[in-house]
Design a protein around this nucleic acid. Structure first.
Ligand SMILES: [Mn+2]
Ligand SMILES: [Mn+2]
Ligand SMILES: [Zn+2]
Ligand SMILES: [Zn+2]
Lengths: 129, 129
DNA sequence: GCGTTAGTGATAATCGTTTTCATGTTACTC
DNA sequence: GAGTAACATGAAAACGATTATCACTAACGC
């Protein structure tokens, strides 16, 4: 899905806003932050661009417990997981080769193909406890 | 949270409907199934009872990709994970002691306490491929 | 049976997200 | 630099799952 997207002021502002944050944030939070930072942008545009960026692999998205989707520009463009503080949102990227192998093997063992998985870890970071 | 809940016709019908299904189903699916099966019940009642059952550990709930919450009465009352067919919904319960240890250790290593995790595996089962 | 109180359900409200559609911009050609 | 077709934007309306309301019903303990 390599896409040629037009460069707009809004898209640039969104990418910059993402780049400067270490936390996962919802579309609405990001929208408010952009507004506060003096970059007027429509909410629908935030949603659209976040989805495009996610589809293009530029940002990660996770679904919070309450069902809201949160976005973050992660350092690695490759498959990884997250350890997220439930207090402050501080996020640490994790790789879990054992889990990758484990899920693949279990899928195969049960005759499943095209095996995917989701894995997220949460806790309270040192500063927050 | 061990709760003393009153036994009602609706609650009994819901528990029975859950017991006879192997798939994860949304509250609305379960509601429709109950109606079709001749057990009139309000949608709000389905939602309320499913949440109670989940809080009491009687049913598992997972969030689908589209954000919908799905429910299922699982065999084991203990912590486990799922391998779910994206085609037919067929579900296999998994335990992953290695993952349990891995997430605990990683949390501790980064100074996190009260570490929790979610892990779900999806794929296409033999029958569906 | 009675009273207390949790449970029910039709309906309205909530809220994150998506769609609509008229208008603004971008990228490209000449 | 125009001209232009396709894409992007955004205010507003629509959507859809879930939750809240509230008048009514039915369990439970006595
Ligand atoms: Mn993985
Ligand atoms: Mn586990
Ligand atoms: Zn923290
Ligand atoms: Zn299947």
């Amino acid at each position: 899905m390599s896409t040629e997207r037009r460069s707009t002021r809004q898209r640039a502002a969104l990418i910059e806003a993402l780049g400067t944050s270490l936390r996962f944030r919802s579309a609405q939070e990001i929208h408010a932050d952009l507004r506060d930072a003096g970059s007027p942008i429509g909410l629908a545009t935030v949603y659209r661009n976040l989805q495009n960026l996610a589809a293009d692999g530029e940002v990660d998205q996770v679904r919070a417990e309450d069902g809201e989707v949160r976005y973050r520009a992660c350092g690695s463009g490759h498959h990884h997981h997250h350890l997220v503080c439930r207090g402050c949102g501080r996020t640490i990227e994790l790789t879990a080769p054992d889990v990758e192998r484990w899920s693949e093997a279990l899928g195969a063992e049960h005759g499943f193909t095209n095996v995917q998985h989701t894995l997220e870890v949460t806790g309270t970071c040192a500063r927050c406890s």
